[in-house]
Design a protein around this nucleic acid. Sequence first.
DNA 1: GCGATGACTTCGG
DNA 2: CCCGAAGCCATCG
Length: 122
Amino acid sequence: MANRASRRGAGADSGGSAAAARAALFCAVIARIPRGRVASYGQIAALAGLPRHARHVGAALRDLDDDDAVPWHRVVSSSGRVSPRDDPAAGAIQRALLEAEGVRFDARGRIDLRRFAWRAGP
DNA sequence: GCGATGACTTCGG
DNA sequence: CCCGAAGCCATCG
């Protein structure tokens, strides 16, 4: 996998192999999100078998690389809001990507989770 | 080992 | 509905 993720002082997996494993796990779950739908960080963590690790889902996405084919843009906060991060431009990109998939934002920039929230299929 | 940090979540005002 | 505070958990300095 083209993983150049090594943002933090930690090399790709120096001591962070556990984190890398979780990241891969989260990515696997995120990859299951259908196009045109969104899921919350906590939801991803729970589906990955790690409830209460919502923050680490975000951390994993934060470490992602541009080459990674992960639909990170389908991950939003539990409020259906795009989480603010260092670069506000990324938020605009995320919104654009979601809108391109058919996800609609309201005037306040919020997503109608009643319509777009992903539910794990039966 | 401790204090600080963070793409979060939930509760109370 | 918006804002602030507390909780949770692994990683970092």
